[in-house]
Amino acid sequence: MEEREWVNAAKKGDEYALAQLFQQNYSFLVHYLIKLTYSLEQAEDLAQETMTKAIEHIVKFNGKSKFSTWLISIATRLYIDQKRKQKREQSWQKQEQALRMIKWQAQSANEDWHMMLESLGKLKDDFRIPILLKHYYGYSYDEIAAMLQIAEGTVKSRVHKGIQMVRKELNEDDKGQYPVGKTVEQN
């Protein structure tokens, strides 16, 4: 059975069809949320909340995009709302904690990929999310604009500016001029 058929059945109230869609897209959703939160625990919690929202709004899903795209749009909005509700300091501490864990894991394996994640983690979500959606997932600017409910031009400029900021910080880190833990755009 194709995705569109599962979607149509789910919209008509078929619980098995919706469960199939969730199961097929669960791994994709959690992996996306791991890249946003840097934490498996938070990613799984947000995935549960995303499914709850999807169950409520499945009848409104127009089927123009893939089901996975719809799910990550919901997940992104939930993540942004959650961060807004949390106290800024609290959310920053959580991310720092997650980053320390990742750094430790990477260093144990003698790898340096955590440097890039650390720099990306210091970016504001306004920049980080469009970069992730554009360059990792390959979504077009208009798709990202629709997902984040912002103008296409804003997405383009955020992707461009965000990359410049990360590159700048990585270059400065190499020269040892930029203190670790200080943010570029976090303030």
């Binding site: 890249k35 990929w113 994640l117 990306l120 992730l132 360059h135 990792y136």
Partner: peptide, 9 residues
């Protein structure tokens, strides 16, 4: 960057 994300995954 994508390599870093893959490693994170």
């Amino acid at each position: 960057m994508n390599h870093s994300f893959e490693q994170l995954e």
